[in-house]
Design a protein around this nucleic acid. Structure first.
Length: 362
DNA sequence: AACTCGGGGGC
DNA sequence: GCCCCAGAGTT
């Protein structure tokens, strides 16, 4: 059965009108006051939606406010230096979001006169604007009845409509998009979509939902069947791989510290870090050889400063922070340089390496 | 479809 | 520890 026919079957005997009304009424009464809800400025909505990807509201708020002061409109972001944008994103994670956002904003300025496209195709073709973000911008900024299916929406709808599809599977999002098309309010799609997400964040939470406070409790099949905590169905993901590194703190005779810029693609792209030796298959002596080969500096290991474990979504860095002293040689590395401790603050560092700042800046 | 890509907070 | 979060891009 295709998704459209399935939607009809699932929504058979579901009171769409009453559900919409109860959800929207609750959202209008109980919604949180958030900076990106001050108005419907599509640029603000856009920036907020990118920041909110896989990131909690409380984390985003200060970043959003600062970002809007620094880059208040598409033009200011389009003309900004990429390192400046990354610095504003520092600590937020998923840094390709920042790069893609700037790429897309530049396209909006050049191709669309600085106006965020209303057209779903044009909007969805922008870098970093996927199915969710497209629907969120169209509904929230432009009052268009398009689905915006995120983790909240899948959790909420899986319970209300008793859908047992595994939400970890890519194709399941399409199932819920079709369901949203079936239940979304055409009068107020913005409040409907935001209401679904707000409900997921405040009431219909993953572990212990507050069903007694739920504005759409009477519409919820899972609650009525007493199975709300068994939904949604989600297959678990595998655990992270551990990778050992040696983090090297080196000062020259001017009191400057050695840092380097990471590659422009891949993990933590274009961010800065202290030199980092991959210790898998390397011992203490061969690490020195590796370091001299890479940087042109002959060093001896100094004091062991700290062990840092940093957990990513898909891997774990086990970092031994050590001091090193230059014995001989001249720095010879495309992306590395000595900088003063004051200048360190101008470079975007991933949190993993910010943890090592205390060994240089204090 | 599976993998990559950050970091924080809840329990 | 494990799970989740207003997901998207790449392979």
């Amino acid at each position: 059965m295709n998704n459209q026919d399935r939607t009809k079957q699932i929504l058979n005997d579901f009171d769409i009108q009453a559900f919409q009304q109860d959800l929207i009424r609750w959202f209008k009464d109980e919604q949180r006051i958030l900076p990106w809800r001050e108005n419907q400025d599509p640029y603000r909505v856009w920036v907020s939606e990118i920041m909110l990807q896989q990131t909690k509201v409380d984390t985003v708020i200060p970043y959003f406010n600062h970002f809007m002061e620094k880059f208040p409109d598409p033009e200011s972001l389009a003309t900004a230096d990429e390192q400046e944008v990354l610095k504003a994103w520092e600590g937020l994670g998923y840094y390709s979001r920042a790069r893609n956002l700037q790429t897309a904003v530049r396209e909006v300025v050049e191709e669309y006169g600085g106006v965020v496209p209303h057209d779903p195709k044009e909007l969805g073709d922008l870098k970093g604007v996927g199915p969710y973000t497209k629907g969120a911008i169209l509904s929230i900024a432009y009052d268009t009845p398009e689905p915006a299916v995120d983790g909240n929406v899948m959790r909420v709808l899986s319970r209300i409509l008793h859908v047992e599809d595994d939400i970890a599977k890519p194709k399941t999002r399409k199932v819920f998009e079709e369901l949203v098309r079936g239940v979304i309010s055409t009068e107020d799609p913005s409040s409907f979509n935001q209401g679904m997400m707000e409900l997921g964040a405040l009431v219909c939470t993953p572990k212990t939902p507050s069903c007694m406070l739920c504005p759409v409790q009477e519409h919820c099949r899972a609650f009525n069947e007493g199975i709300e905590t068994t939904l949604p169905v989600k297959s678990s993901k595998k655990k992270q791989k551990k990778i050992p590194y040696k983090i090297v703190i080196i000062e020259n005779n001017r009191g400057e510290v050695l840092i380097e810029q990471r590659p422009n693609e891949g993990l933590l792209a274009s961010l800065w870090q202290y030199p980092m030796i991959p210790m898998k298959d390397l011992g203490q002596e061969s690490a020195k050889i590796w370091f001299e080969d890479q940087y042109g500096l002959e060093v001896e290991w100094g004091q062991k400063l700290e062990n840092i474990k940093h957990v990513f979504s898909h891997l774990i860095w086990e970092m031994e922070v050590v001091k090193a002293h230059i014995i001989n040689g001249e720095l010879d590395h495309e992306r590395a340089r000595f900088v003063s401790k004051e200048e360190l603050n101008d470079y975007p560092f991933p949190v993993s390496h910010q943890k090592a700042h205390k060994h240089t800046s204090l």
